[in-house]
């Protein structure tokens, strides 16, 4: 018996916003909180919750600092985050492929 691809999806990553955070962080060395908020169209509080979930899972690291008087939060992808993103994308592609496969 083969495992359905949906059973191999990771709950932490298999969510639109969290997958979006990982995808954006994957393309940049680091990404600022404001960029994520704007591009994912979220409130600050909502984004913070998703970032906490990813940080607790060890998929991203969060650095807080100041530029002048302005507080800045930078997010970067960890190795585990990179692997999780690749696996999620691969599972999604497998899932789509399985659904689109003509039935015998």
């Amino acid at each position: 018996m083969t495992i359905h691809p949906s059973n191999e999806l990771d709950d932490v990553v298999h969510q639109r916003v969290r997958l979006g955070i990982l995808a954006i962080a994957h393309e940049a060395r680091r990404v600022e909180f404001g960029y994520l908020r704007t591009n994912l169209d979220l409130t600050g509080g909502n984004l913070s919750q998703h970032i906490s979930v990813l940080e607790s899972a060890g998929l991203i690291t969060v650095e807080k600092g100041y530029e002048g008087k302005r507080a800045r939060t930078w997010v970067s992808l960890t190795k585990a985050g990179n692997i999780a993103l690749r696996e999620e994308i691969a599972q999604l592609k497998r899932l789509i492929g399985q659904i689109e496969k003509p039935k015998k």
């Binding site: 949906s6 999806l9 298999h14 639109r16 997958l19 979006g20 995808a23 954006i24 994957h26 393309e27 940049a28 990404v31 591009n39 994912l40 994308i89 999604l92 592609k93 899932l95 789509i96 659904i99 689109e100």
Partner: peptide, 20 residues
């Protein structure tokens, strides 16, 4: 998840990657 959900999720991440 349905194929439509998976496709939407994949498309939205690819769109974000392209935007960055």
């Amino acid at each position: 998840p349905s194929g439509k959900d998976a496709r939407q999720l994949l498309a939205s991440s690819q769109e974000l990657i392209e935007r960055v």
